[in-house]
Design a protein around this nucleic acid. Structure first.
Lengths: 218, 218
DNA sequence: AAACTCACCTAACGCATGTTTGGTGGTCTG
DNA sequence: CAGACCACCAAACATGCGTTAGGTGAGTTT
């Protein structure tokens, strides 16, 4: 299942990541469609796929279930659209701070801070404490080939982070250390001792914990 | 929702944790009951609550759905039994290495290693990559008061770890740093670059990453 | 041997689900 | 003003769900 994970060059990883920015295939254009999508994102993340029936999603939008079929082919398709929307949004947000001219450690810090910032906004958008755990749960309901598409997109991001970690914090197990760093980014929001902790402070904490852990020698 | 999290003394936290070891209220005694319980643990963790119907669970045990009602009052009760079993098993396993005479840092290392070891065995038992994420998803299907019971038990463990962290690695935000440490314990298994990585090595990695992060100064 | 217990079963219940059919009313367009 | 289009809907469908009722047959007890 897992390969020995060759670490590609930072430049190559970043270029691949940047190039994956495609305009959405179907422009939204309809506000009802948009509302259904946002509601689905929130309910799927909060309550899970099975617990969010088409009727419940529709009611939350002020419409009836059959109307959803005007915009989406069915429930699985709605799930794919919701997950695609979230993943694309995340990667576009990260792309804003990708800069080939930054030093590796500075680039890594920028990405960590942007990641934490996005996570805070996702928690507000979807009411979910952990976007990655939610995604993993939801993927149980998808076909294997669709899961591969999402994993491929995530891998582009993981490659960027891994190559930066390997450059900025040389040492063994760069993949494992990258995953640890990204988990800190995903979860720091949920660990906050108060809901009013400012985002900047959460980003500080994630980077402090993460950069310390990255200096680990095994 | 969250209090300023007073850190209680290590001794007090450990005693509370140890004292919570009660014999199960209902002795299993029946092998069919045991098989249903283990199957439910696996399917709930792998596929989720809604996707694991009574018929599917029963079929996996070689019986028919109504027979489950000979041993459990219903599906929610089966879920509670499954989660109680897993949480009790985990805490009993941790209890084996709780030792009031150890130095805080040594005690913490023992607990981290035991935690990682348990996580590996849980992954084999239930096919799930993250017991805590699975638990959080499943708790959506429980009544609030039952969730509180589980949270109370988890808090006993978190208190032990937090007090040890505060003693062994003095600094601000002991609760946040403890949660980060425990997340490393939960997830290191899933990050392994191969499924054949020996448990000892996973424990090494978790403790290396964790103890490095704990030295963080904010 | 009769009575009882036990583990399990088949059949069926009411209900919620995803989805399809066949509209309805309003707004543009000729 | 007729007709096309659009966004939406009520009603119905087959299916699968958790659960209950009632029964069967083997093993034990009296």
């Amino acid at each position: 299942m897992t390969t020995p994970a060759p670490v590609i060059s930072t430049e190559q990883a970043m270029l691949r990541f940047l190039v994956a920015a495609k305009p959405p295939v179907v422009p939204p254009a309809s506000s009802t469609r948009r509302q259904i999508l946002e509601t689905a994102i929130r309910l799927f993340a909060e309550d899970g796929y099975a617990a969010s029936s088409m009727r419940i999603i529709a009611d939350a939008c002020g419409i009836r279930a059959p109307s959803i079929y005007e915009y989406f082919g069915g429930k699985p398709e709605l799930l794919i659209a919701a997950m695609t929307e979230v993943l694309s949004d995340f990667q576009a947000f990260i792309r804003q701070v990708v800069d080939l001219d930054l030093l590796p450690e500075q680039q890594l810090e920028q990405i960590v801070r942007q990641h934490v910032t996005w996570q805070v906004s996702f928690a507000e958008r979807a009411g979910a404490w952990d976007s990655l755990a939610a995604a993993h749960t939801l993927e149980k309901h998808l076909e294997a080939d669709q899961v591969e598409v999402f994993n491929g997109l995530r891998q582009l991001y993981l490659d960027v982070v891994t190559s930066l970690v390997a450059e900025a914090f040389p040492g063994p197990h760069p993949v494992l250390r990258s995953r640890a760093l990204l988990t800190l980014c995903d979860r720091t929001t949920a660990w906050a001792e108060s809901n009013e902790t400012p985002t900047d402070q959460l980003a500080d904490q994630a980077w402090a914990l993460g950069s310390a852990a990255l200096r680990t020698s095994f």
